[in-house]
Design a binder for these strands. Structure first.
Length: 467
DNA sequence: ATCGGCTCGCGCAA
DNA sequence: TGCGCGAAGCCGAT
């Protein structure tokens, strides 16, 4: 457990305290959560109860109905599962920027220690830099996102092939379920602060001062139950096709778990274990799926953990920066504005369909997303413009945005974790992808039809919401 | 349909 | 120091 846990301030545990506080910033789940397990351990050692705090504010960049409803849909089941284990749960929705932003500190005033998630991007990264100095109790950040903890890697890895053997060497040790330790003291305290009840998600979202123009995903409902259903359906119906059809978007052979992984409503550890059990029982091949779920996902966390700024070209290798500099002034055949990209108004029907999938579903199939990114490079005035556009569109519309995997996928388009290829205009030696290649290798027509149906009917036959 | 060249640099073997 | 090979390819030759 040691390498998972970082003590971020050297404060001593407070002796006179009412509970140990787990602040669920990124791993919004009661199950398979190393950080919660650590909070329980600390509490049990001191015969204290555990209180889980989960917050949602309206002030993070591009806060909108899509992100908010996905998080809020998880709240009732989170409460149910924690209460069933005798763990306190306090959810707080900060509706407007005029509401006080001090709930964590209020709850921390009665806590012996704070445990939270070690997470290398977005708000959690900033919080874990600033909050530890503002509290007078210990502040522990626990890596419950990765199977092999980020702290096990001593440096930034160059590519998948350099981290793969290291991960595989450590997997036997880390690929084990999180122990579900019972709490010794059930949480029975009354708090002065009022938690936010979530009974009607749409009403709660409507009451927030956020961007209401980005509607909830047509396809992905948030929450633990939806996450478990998605995992079970993947294992029952799609895992057997994954290796062969993962790059055929119209075949729907991928897991669709990235939104749930990003918001921590399910852990990659329990997904990996479930895939391995299924592979064992039904003689399925899980290797290719586990490669993506573990090696490539954790390469992304390794990159983010060692990067000063995950949104910068500073991260890409020298050859890529040099070749871009040499080609930044090349003439572009098409140049689109951010708004034209955003509203899917290019000349390319496949690109537009991928962007519409982003607008409607809230994520793009992994294979077409590479094409989507490469074309933004091809049709932007500068490489820097292309990078900004990709980050903006993910931040605003993608349920799997703001994640280490997001930035890695984007920077991969600019050569990170990749190698040079034959030089050509605009791209230089960055890998190029073409419409003809997509046409040759995938069923573009079926995908266009699928997205057209989504757009016309507002319904996703491949992922009916269970409302 | 299949194949080699394109091009850089990491990490390991020697 | 040499060598193999890499996160999703393209293109032209055969």
């Amino acid at each position: 457990m040691e390498r998972r846990v970082k003590a971020l301030n050297g404060r001593p545990v407070k002796e006179q305290a009412d509970y140990v506080l787990y602040w669920a910033q990124m791993n919004r789940r009661a199950d398979s959560n190393h950080a919660l397990a650590y909070a329980i351990q600390l509490a049990n050692e001191r015969r204290l109860p555990v209180l889980v705090y989960e917050g949602l504010t309206c002030t993070y960049p591009y806060a909108n109905d899509r992100m908010h409803s996905f998080v809020l849909e998880g709240v009732p089941e989170m409460r149910r599962r924690l209460q069933a284990r005798g763990i306190g749960y306090h959810f707080h929705l900060r509706r407007t920027r005029h509401d006080p932003d001090d709930r964590l500190y209020k709850l921390a005033a009665r806590a012996a220690a704070i445990v939270t998630d070690d997470y290398p991007t977005f708000i959690a990264r900033r919080h874990n830099g600033s909050v530890p100095t503002k509290v007078d109790i210990p502040y522990f950040a626990v890596d419950s996102s990765c199977i092999v903890p980020m702290g096990q890697m001593e440096k930034r890895e160059y590519a998948a092939y350099t981290i793969r053997p290291k991960i595989h060497r450590l997997l036997p040790h880390f690929l084990t379920p999180v122990e579900k330790t019972a709490v010794r003291r059930p949480f029975q305290l009354t708090l002065d602060e009022e938690p936010t009840a979530v009974t009607d998600v749409a009403a709660s979202v409507a009451a927030c001062e956020i961007d209401h123009s980005v509607k909830p995903s047509l396809s992905y409902e948030g929450g633990r139950l939806a996450a478990e259903r998605t995992l079970n359906e993947f294992i029952a119906n799609r895992l057997r096709r994954y290796a062969r059809e993962k790059n055929e978007p119209s075949a729907h052979a991928t897991s669709d778990l990235s939104p749930y992984l990003h918001f921590g409503q399910i852990s990659s550890l329990e997904v990996a274990l479930a895939a391995m059990v299924a592979a064992d029982e039904h003689k399925l091949i899980a290797g290719e799926f586990l490669e993506e779920l573990i090696v490539r996902r954790e390469l992304a966390f390794n990159f983010a953990a060692f990067s000063a700024d995950v949104e910068s070209f500073d991260n890409i290798p020298d050859w890529a920066r040099k070749t871009m500099a040499a080609h930044d002034g090349d003439r572009r055949d098409f140049v689109y504005s951010r708004e034209q990209f955003e509203h899917a108004q290019t000349h390319d029907p496949l690109w537009n369909a991928a962007q519409k999938e982003m607008l409607l579903r809230g994520k793009i199939h992994g294979y077409y997303r590479m094409y989507w990114g490469k074309k933004i490079i091809e049709w932007s005035a500068t490489h820097q413009d292309a990078l900004r556009t990709m980050i903006y569109l993910h931040d605003r519309y993608a349920l799997d945005g703001r994640d280490p995997a997001t930035y890695t996928n984007i920077l991969w388009c600019f050569g990170m974790h990749d190698r040079p290829w034959q030089e050509r205009a605009v791209f230089g030696m960055l890998r190029y992808m073409s419409y003809d290649g997509m046409k040759r290798k995938t069923n573009v027509e079926a995908y266009l039809k699928e997205i057209e149906f989504l757009e016309r009917t507002g319904k996703d036959p491949f992922r009916p919401k269970q409302v």
